[in-house]
Nucleic acid binder design. Structure first.
Lengths: 208, 208
DNA sequence: ACATGACATGTCATCTCTGACATGTTTACT
DNA sequence: AGTAAACATGTCAGAGATGACATGTCATGT
């Protein structure tokens, strides 16, 4: 082992972080329903369009969570529409729930980004493959920056109104722009890091 | 519904992205074992120290995946040590597996960042709570930038050697620095966005 | 001789999400 | 009148991860 915290700190009978793995959908749905009543179908669409780029969710997860939320009194049936459509409305209890999360909930700061995980293992790649990969990535990140930038510009010209919800979305988009810009710059930077010397310490062949 | 792609594109019988939810641990373990043989305990420690800040994993998941990996011939028993310790070594098949992932696997670019999800719902918070939250976040992100920066400086002074694996880690750390810097700047920026007007379009009270 | 703590591996109930499958309803075009 | 497409909701087996629980091994100090 290299540098390190003692393992037994976490191991035997210690209460861990208690960070909820994906209670996120629970709050995400409440947050969306705080805007306006919606059906599972509507919510699925919203995940497909915008939120899903940050926090993916498919319809089985959504319908399932909707059922649980209703059971627990965080939301309630608002109306039944034409094709079996069921729209839900958030209850005061639900609104309190999501607000408590926002102001008092533990924040998980882990950046679960697959490209970052991959970067730990770049040393296993051939230099030319790595180079090609990083170029592709930089390109892709730049295209996202462009996409979000144009959305932000439209918003700043008042195209979607000036309400609080739109303003929140604008803030989220700004995060996207800055994050993807950072990732694009990082990819460019990484592509210019010289390939390493073969590592003497281990038996596995590194990138030649 | 607002702007949007037709839902039926994904719905009826279309093959979805097939993006693997967390096949990531499978590859992460292979990547770590490509460096040197290790036991479940060692690998758990490494997740706790470094990798876990990017991709968390607890010991039950690790021991479980290790078993599957061995069953499938991606890794093999290297040695049995003092206290039931079992160290595994990656096989040629396993090395091929992780390399194929790195060079040919689909990349999932979704930034699963809880702070970003939260930002979609900032409009539900009281302005002063939001302000306090953003200040705390900015502070925290800055502390991470500092931490990773000092690590990078140590590395650049040759403190951990110059091997390929260390160089990869340096690249990952650079991503962390840039990402957290972007997030710190974003938090500062967001704290200075003026609170929105009450939104006329819906019935739920927004931040006053 | 024995207790303690670090080392080390495992099981299990439970939770969440996913892809595949299944189904019913309404509109629009031909 | 018929059929295709969009609208809309659901079930289910299975994968993957988690916290809690359980157990066994070795070194050290008393």
């Amino acid at each position: 082992m290299s540098c390190g915290t003692s393992l037994s700190e976490w191991h035997p009978h210690v209460k861990a972080d208690m960070y909820s793995p994906a209670m996120s959908l629970h709050y995400a749905l409440l947050g969306l329903l705080a805007e306006a009543p919606a059906s599972g179908y509507d919510l699925t669409a919203r995940f497909g369009e915008v939120l899903g780029h940050i926090w993916p969710a498919r319809h089985p997860a959504i319908y399932g969570e909707l059922g649980r939320l209703a059971e627990d009194g965080f939301i309630e049936l608002e109306s039944e529409g034409p094709r079996r459509r069921k729209a839900y409305r958030i209850t005061p209890k639900g609104l309190e729930e999501v607000r408590a999360w926002l102001t008092a909930g533990e924040v998980d700061h882990t950046p679960r980004l697959e490209p970052l995980l991959r970067s730990c293992f770049f040393w296993l790649m051939e230099p030319e493959d790595l180079r090609a990969y990083l170029d592709r990535e930089a390109e892709y990140f730049r295209s996202l920056v462009e996409k979000y930038t144009s959305y932000a510009a439209a918003k700043d010209h008042g195209e979607f109104g000036t309400g609080a919800r739109v303003q929140s979305l604008r803030v989220t988009v700004e995060a996207g722009i800055r994050l993807y810009q950072a990732l694009a710059d990082w990819s460019d930077w990484a592509a210019r890091v010289p390939p390493a010397q073969p590592d003497p310490e281990d038996g596995i062949e590194t990138n030649r």
